[in-house]
Amino acid sequence: MTTTMITTIAPRTKGSTTMLDDFMTRALLAGMGVAFAAAPLGCFVVWRRMAYFGDATAHAAILGVALSLALNMSIFAGAMIIALVMAALVANLSDRGFAMDTMLGVLSHSALAFGLVAVSFLPNVRIDIMAYLFGDILAVNKVDLAVIWCGAALVVGMLIWRRNALLLSTLSPDLAYASGIDPRREQLILTLSLAIVVAVAIKVVGVLLITAMLIIPAATARTISRTPLAMMVIATCVAVAAVLSGLQVSLWQDTPTGPTIVCCAAVFFVFSMSLGALLKERTN
């Protein structure tokens, strides 16, 4: 990693033409893009108890990566297609009365295992599988950046557009139906958003830690929020702060960036838990 840094930093010291030529700037922007989409979506994942569902979708994406490499197409497209297939499969099976957690455990880990095996079959491809498992945010290029921000904008746009319908469907499907909202359609919007977030987050935190970027900021925000909107806004702030501090720490300590970002988020979570406990004690 040290050597990459030196070589990539080089053009900057010579005086680069745009700020996007700086790998640190690109990493920062990529991380923020993922944070903006993952944090508010993560709130819905937490409210609807879909954490395992997120895991299964994310793990399946490694199969998508293998597919993309074999067919020589975009990693984003491959990951998203497989994530959507996985989501549809889970939704379909859950209607047939399987125990949800068992089934998700089966699907999630089999998808990961099959993905890893599939990657090993690829001829003439020398890829660093670690980059897909844990992300490689420092290697994000301008095209990746554009895809990440388009995906994030799409997800945030959908969440803002449907927020009240999504919220009511989450709270009570019966209330939603009575108000003329179809909760199944809202579920579809969340599933689609999840697939997009998984696809754009692979480069940043990798398939194994995507769920962390969904869950931890939302869980951190919960203790200090009083309304759903506040929780989404605070979660986004936490996620952005985790990206900023994670990047800094990883640069400073030369640690893997994706996991460092998640570590920072986890530290914020502990802080907020203590703060929450303190606030509770004061009000009692």
Partner: peptide, 19 residues
């Protein structure tokens, strides 16, 4: 109405759903 513990929701916010 069961409100999940993970969902913070004030009476006012609830009354504003879905309109």
């Amino acid at each position: 109405l069961h409100v999940d513990v993970t969902l913070p929701l004030t009476v006012r916010a609830f009354l504003n759903l879905p309109t």
